[in-house]
Structures are given as structure tokens and as C-alpha cells.
Design a protein around this nucleic acid. Sequence first.
DNA 1: GTACTAATGATGGTCTCCTATATAACTCTC
DNA 2: GAGAGTTATATAGGAGACCATCATTAGTAC
Lengths: 398, 398
Amino acid sequence: MSTMPPMGGDLSRLRQLNALTVIKTLRGAEAATLSALAERTGLSRPSTKEVIDELSAMGWVEEVPPASGTMGRPARRYRFRADGGHLMGLDIGAYHIRAALADLDGGVIAETRRPAHPGAPLEDRLAAIEQAAATCLALGGLTIADLWAVAVGTTGLVGPEGRVIMSASIPAWRDLDLGGLLGEMFPCRVLVENDSRLAALAETRRGVARDARDVVFLHIGRRMGTGLIIDGRLHRGFGAAAGEIVMLPEAGWRDGPVDLNDAAIVPDGLPPEDAAGFTLAAARDGDPTALDAVARFTDKLAVGTAAAVLLLDPEIVVLGGGFSRSADVLLPPLRSRLERVCLRMPKLSASTLGDECVVLGAIDYAIEHLDQLFFAPDAPALRPPVRPATSPPGPDPT
Amino acid sequence: MSTMPPMGGDLSRLRQLNALTVIKTLRGAEAATLSALAERTGLSRPSTKEVIDELSAMGWVEEVPPASGTMGRPARRYRFRADGGHLMGLDIGAYHIRAALADLDGGVIAETRRPAHPGAPLEDRLAAIEQAAATCLALGGLTIADLWAVAVGTTGLVGPEGRVIMSASIPAWRDLDLGGLLGEMFPCRVLVENDSRLAALAETRRGVARDARDVVFLHIGRRMGTGLIIDGRLHRGFGAAAGEIVMLPEAGWRDGPVDLNDAAIVPDGLPPEDAAGFTLAAARDGDPTALDAVARFTDKLAVGTAAAVLLLDPEIVVLGGGFSRSADVLLPPLRSRLERVCLRMPKLSASTLGDECVVLGAIDYAIEHLDQLFFAPDAPALRPPVRPATSPPGPDPT
DNA sequence: GTACTAATGATGGTCTCCTATATAACTCTC
DNA sequence: GAGAGTTATATAGGAGACCATCATTAGTAC
């Protein structure tokens, strides 16, 4: 038998577990009293207190002024110090680079975007990434040393080690050790992942698929892709190649939205990247040619989606990516086709996060990574680069 | 936020966790000394001893004679008492009913099978199940009261509550509360699951896919189905309808192996259930008509399989079910078609468990269920219907 | 029969959690 | 504005579970 995860252990391990439970409980809640924490964690009051004191000393938790106007003695309230550390999410697409700076709760502090060109040489793209990150940090009043982790979402097939195997839309992205390159740029952990997968994660953590355990995310735009959340976790597959239903010939996703791009209604002079949008807009206005093109497109879309739904039986299918702006045009025909085939029809919704979904997903991914670090039995128990609280939360002697 | 699983807790919880670690370590190993256990679990010797004493008193562990011929004082050796409890696995197919009795390690003690008829009325089928179970128990020298759990695999769509929604091959299986009916038959926990899924589980626990975390199992025979193991766990989906790629029109699995059944080479008088086998045998002998039929069949098989592989990127695809006997004929064409489409080609192997895979999977499923019970934080901590060891393993005062 | 080896068994100490009780702070009512 | 009522805090005592250490024991090797 292979080595198993020793889940029990020392007394200190028990304390670590309880501390993590407290942190998890505190997170998301705005602020909580000791009694509330004790009840929600199942610990006794004195124990909760001790844990909180320890966490305060380490800078993970801080006290906030008690709520006034309540009966009885006012309860001390504690809050997770989301500003104890910072994360950066990056979205590196063919035509754009986005950066977002966030706290440990995933709250966005600053955001930047700058255009990019698919064919630009590698150095230019890397320089643009560095600039976007620098701008974002400056906006947030932080330096690169404040970052605990950076997560990157990019188009293409990303290997297990942060290596970009290939990307259809960025020629320079071919057998490239992107993780390594960015690792030289940032003095912290760098995670690289496929953009569709990260978008799926964002949608499950804070979008329409919140709290769903099984989600199929359709990343539909100039490029097509999918991201799968299975049992609440991002599914990567054995070789990190999961979600590539694009390659199934029978689904006909491979050439992207050709039906929309090549519709007869598209004017000759229009730049190719705007063609699909034009067709979708015309379909919304009821143009029959455009509607026909949309029907052909959704037919193909439905084949791959049906395969995913039949295999995984997700709770919800989310339509995201650039075309999700046209969800009103795409969803009805997609729904009717799926209903014809699916054994159990899942919910079907458009993304609510829009263009930001990949950066947000990157941030959520980074948070997940940090969480996992803390939970490791042999972890340096809650002691990442955390500096003591700026204002010591101990009893103020005034 | 919904209620989260409190992972820490009491001191007793820590003990529970450590006891479970010890049990997990002990399981699978033939017998282990205290020192070995202490090292493998990470606990200290005295603690390990205390845990072992507790487990012995509860009947989970027993002492075996020390190994002779070693240096130093002989170490006491302990063993997981697999015979402390018993499980039953059932495989209810259209044409057969199988029952297997197993110990807590999943080792099969006795096995029965009896024929069935697809169109038989419900009562007959239930009576046959009861008889199969009784025979099996008698063979093992046990009574129905010795069973801790019964797991059932059957064809058709099985709902989350053990309800059979419908089954294409057993007419009586329609909107039937099978879990409830069998719950009256057996005085213990009864689990109902789709047979393909259980076969997939068996294959990952003890078959060719042992230790793989992501597995696609193809259940190929008179009926077609799939079972998915994702991240080491059986994937059921939100509505327990996962794996039903059969329904995808583009894959053409819906009508089963029509290409093999209707091949021109099949003699007229042959009973329909033997037709496919005849074609496969002819193909093995090189008959061109049969080979052509096999090619058409594997073409279809490859479409659905490719969809699953592209979406999930499994480590291995296992070909199981009745036709896995003809894997030598089916695998080569299937492999070549998959290689053409898949981004990363998974391993592709035939099942090694044969006809027993569903009962074995049912047993493994029952074991998994029991394990899960023990791990629950609020569990009655390791106290299922376990009777004290027949021979008290304490120090014998002679 | 003596030396060596490796496991056993017992003792004391530390850590973490729990229950219970006394104390403190604030609101509401008269 | 004083007392009653309410809710939290703080502290003390006790039990459970783990660990390190050391003397003891039961074998093998020479």
C-alpha cells in the first residue's frame, strides 16, 4: 500500500485542526463573537478563546469594536484578517492581459488590463505581464514582496508542472515553461492553469454555480473550451488534459464558431474577431440568416455539452466566455436541444462574472492552494510570510 | 455558508482518528508488530499500544502468534479481524442473479449464482434474490443477522435513494423502491447502485485499474454502460445519472451492439443473446464479414469513449462486461480509433475480474460505506454490530 | 553461560480540551 | 439613577491522550 495521509497524530495536530476550523468559520462571516464561534465550531468557549488568542498573536485574526445596542455585556468580536496577505490573479489571453490584486478573502483590491497581440514575440508578452502586475500593485499600494501567491490562467494546454504544452491562439506559447519564467518574475509560489478551468472555479465559488458540487462550465468565445468542477473540486485529469471535448470530431467545436464567423450576413470589411459578435447581434434583432447560423452553432454546442452532461450529470451548466453576453440568444436553442437528449436536465445559466471570470478564478485557485498548504499535516502550521498585526489586538491599557 | 464538516474537535475525536489510522494501516497488511505500526502511523509506541488494546477489546483487532526466528525479544503481532463482520454483494442482471459473501477485507467467503429471466414478474425475481442470498449465507455458515451491510448492483438508472427509476432490460424494474424492498429482506443497511458503476469500482480497487485515481470503465455487453471513478471516488452525479453516455445519439450506443447482433454471418436460428458472441468469435477467426461488423461496432464505441477520455483525461480506460472476453478482438481497433482523436492517450486494458466484477464492486462499495460511517465525526465511534472476539486476545494466564 | 538485540511495561510530564463557577459590563425598567 | 435582568468574560480544577525515558524481559548468537 502506498503511504497514506495520517489524519490523526499529535495533540498539537488537534490544535492545528481546530485552529483551521475556526479560521474557516471566521472567513466569509463579517465578524463573529466568541460564543457564535464556539457554537459553530463545536468547541467549548475556553478552547475557542485560546485558539483565537493564538491566531491573533500570529496575525491571522483581529479584534473589532463590539457591536453596540445589544442586551447584556457586549461580546468581543473577531474578524479574519483578510489583509494579512495578498494574492495576484493573471489572465493571459491572446488579445488581452488582465491582472487583479486580492486579499486572502478573494476580495479584489485593484485591477488592470492591457491589450495584447496574438502574434507578439514572447519577450513583449512577458514585459506586458510584468507591467500589468506592477501597475496593479502600485494601484493597491503594495510591492511585489507582499504577494503570497500568483495564479495564472492562460489559453492552451497546461501541463501538470505549469508548462504550456501548446496554445492554438498564442503562437509563442508552445512548449514553454511559463511557470518557471513567471517564477523568476515573482518571489513567491506561481501556479499556472488553463483559463477555462479557472473560470469554472470562479463561477462555482462566487458566480451562478455557487455551492454546486458538480459543474460543467462552457467557455464559449473566439476559442472554445470547458472547465469541470467535480465533487466541489477542479478536475484536471491524470495528464492535466481534462475538459478538452473541443477535440471530439463529432461535436465539431474544433474550428471554433465558424458558423457565426462565416454567416452570409457578415459584411466583408469586418475584422474577423468581430464577425461572431455581429451575427449574434443580428440574431437578437431577428435576422433569419443570423438565426440560422446561430441554430447551426448551437447544434454543435449541444453535442459536446450533451456528452458532458450525460457523463457527469452536473447540477448546473454555465455558459461563460465572450459569447455569454449573448446568452439570451444562445441559451434557448441550446436548452431545447439538450432537453431532447439529456436523461436529467441540469440547470442552465449564463455566467454572471463576465470578462473577469478568469482573473477571479485565478485568485480563487491561489486561495485554494494556500488553504491546502495549511491543511497539510506536516505544514509549517499557519506560518506563511505573515507579519504581526499592525495594531496589536490585545487588551488596550487605557 | 452551509454547515461545514468540523474536522477537529474533542480529545476523543483525536483518539478516534488515530484508531482509524491504525485500522487502515493494519488492513491489507497480513500482520504487524507494534513497532511497525507505530512507525507507519507516526504515533509513539505507548499510544499505539493503547489504541491496539482498545481495538482488541472491541473486537476489531486480534493478536496472532509472534514470528519466530528473529533477533531479540519476539514482538507481539496484531491483525485486523476481517471476520469480525460480514458483507453481502448482489448482482441483479436481466439474465442472472449473483450473490457473494465477504469479510470486512472484501475477501470472498462464498458465492452463488442462479439464472433469471428478464420478463419474470417482480415476486419471482425477489424470491430468487432471497434464495441466492440464503444459499450464499448457508455456504458460509452464517445467518442473515451476521450481515453488516448489503450492496446491490443492478441494471438501469438508480436514483439517489436506492430507487430504480427504470431499466431497459428488466421490465419489472420501473419506478421501484428496490432499496426499500430489500431493506425488508435484510436487517441491515442496504445500498443500491448501478451495476456499471460498481464494476468500475471493483476494477479500481482490485482489478487492472488498481491505484488509479481517474478511471473510465466501459461496461460492454448485451447492454452498454459506463462507470466513472474520479479522484479515487465513484462519481454518481447530482441526480445519480452520471455515466449515461449511452444516450448520446452521436455515439450510437443506444441500441446496444446491433452491428454485432445483426451481422450477416449470424445463423438464422441462433438465439438473439448469443448473436454478438458468435460474431466476435468469427472475427477472431478472421472472417471478413464479422471483422467488418466489429469495425462498425468499435467505431461507435470509440465515439463515446473519446468523449469520456477528452472530458476526463483518465489514467486508464477499462473494457469490461460480457464482451471483455473478446478484448483481443475489440481492443486493437478501439485503440487505433482513440489514438486518432485523444489529446493524451490513456492506458487501455481489458477487465481482469470478468463476470464477478459487479458483485465484487458491490462488496467494495459496502466496505467504503462502512468506512465512511466510521469516519463521520459524530459517528458511534467504531461500534457497529460488532461482537467481542470469540477468543479474548488478552494475556492468557497459564 | 554470557553477550547482544529488540521488544515490553511502567512512570511522569505536557498539552489540549471540557465543565463549572465567580465576575464583569451593559440595557432596561421603575 | 439604582436595581434587576441578560449576556460575556475570566479563572480554576479535572480528565483524556499523547510523548519521552528507562528498567525489564525474552529471545538469538557465540
